[in-house]
Nucleic acid binder design. Structure first.
Lengths: 232, 232
DNA sequence: CTTTAATTCAAACATCTGTTTTAATCGTAT
DNA sequence: ATACGATTAAAACAGATGTTTGAATTAAAG
């Protein structure tokens, strides 16, 4: 039985190509060619292209969301035990850290992170519905926790601020692999190069900002940024 | 000569459908059907589907970027005259305000703003290259100005912080029309409804946050958020 | 009015899409 | 070895895609 092997090969290829060219921009023939399997294998193992997309999300998003949920719950539990409100910073950390550190768990994970970074803003309803079905429980829990942490804010304002944070995080995820955003990478790199004053950017000639910063530092900067924004 | 009329009809239809279903998710036949013109009209007037996309961007992005540039230049000029550094808040305002207030200049403008909100993270290289070719001069100028405003930050850190801001803004633009993001709207709306404590969200039953806040308030909140993040 | 160029239109183009079919092949248990 | 269910493979399917063609129509110029 090579079943599992074939399914994994298809999932890996689809994950990569969906991240690179989008759902509609990726044909089943491109996927099966990269996976080294027959075209019919997708419909045999998954049923349809849409079902394949669901499986691509499901494979990574279920364990990832479990980690995020656990972190969030432990933050709330710790605060409850101390009789205080959870801090915005801790909540934001539980939101940001698992996602970004997940990038480092393998090449496939990096592709997937770039994919979900795109899926938040995906134009096609096919991709959106597939993605949000897995994200809803976490988002709901997160918003509830934020209301607890920032009781002075109205629900509307808090919601928008959280959406600003979501945008900041997922945009960063999109940029996590330079190869997927060559135009943006070039624009920013040339902007930095043309500065010519102040602190020198040591890496300007070699690469592009965003893919050489360590995950730990990126988490730190991002949490600092959105925590300050949430509390402003 | 009905030339201009036909071209405009095609551009309007394409702008709407690209925003709703993405570039690859929109067929020329869908565009021409909505525009009420013949399929061949696109290739006759624009040359190709890709060239049509370029024209959709160009029509709005050139005047919009000119406004952003002028605002940015006036901020820098005012600071120079006073012999001080431009404030982060003023720079961020010049970045955010023109984009968001542009939404209100008409129905087509609203469609377009949703479209460019998506194009930043678009998976397809076709859309990305079309979009970034118009955005590069502004991004370059913006980064240069930020270096001036925050001389204490290294170029790399500043760049990442600006990218967080870009993410926050464009994610908000994506959500500026609820009809394009029904799943996300539902997730957030239900999350708010299930709060049950603190300030009551008056609008929870009627609509969804994001499309009833005034542009002025949205600009204010967004500028507050990213200014705090930049200065954190 | 006639001529001429620009524009529209229906139809067809070749190619690509996701999916299905049918036969061949594989691994495994009897 | 045989039989059987699972998997693969090649081929074909109907439909949609972007683009092109060539005739019909329209509008402006002489």
């Amino acid at each position: 039985m090579n079943r599992i092997g074939t399914q994994k090969k298809i999932l890996d290829a689809a994950e990569l190509l969906f991240a690179e060219n989008g759902y509609h921009g990726t044909s089943l023939r491109a996927i099966t060619a990269k996976a080294g399997v027959n075209v019919a294998a997708v419909n045999y193992h998954f049923g349809s292209k849409k079902a394949l997309l669901d499986n691509v999300f499901e494979r990574r998003l279920i364990p990832l969301n479990r980690i995020r949920m656990e972190k969030l719950e432990s933050v709330r539990a710790a605060a409850r035990e101390l009789g205080v409100r959870p801090s915005v910073r801790d909540l934001m950390y539980a939101f940001v850290a698992p996602t970004i550190t997940f990038r480092d768990s393998g090449k496939g994970a990096r592709n997937f992170i770039a994919l979900i970074g795109r899926s938040v803003g995906e134009s096609s309803s096919t991709v959106r519905s597939s993605f949000f079905q897995f994200m809803e429980p976490f988002v709901r829990f997160m918003v509830e926790s934020l209301v607890e942490a920032l009781p002075g804010l109205s629900g509307e304002v808090l919601l928008r601020k959280f959406q600003f944070s979501v945008g900041a995080l997922f945009h960063t995820l999109r940029l996590s692999d330079e190869s997927y955003m060559p135009e943006q990478a070039k624009v920013f790199a040339s902007a930095v190069k043309s500065l010519g004053k102040g602190k020198v950017i040591k890496s300007a000639g070699k690469g592009v900002s965003g893919n050489k910063v360590s995950s730990e530092q990126l988490v730190e900067e991002l949490v600092n940024f959105i925590t300050a924004g949430m509390e402003a």
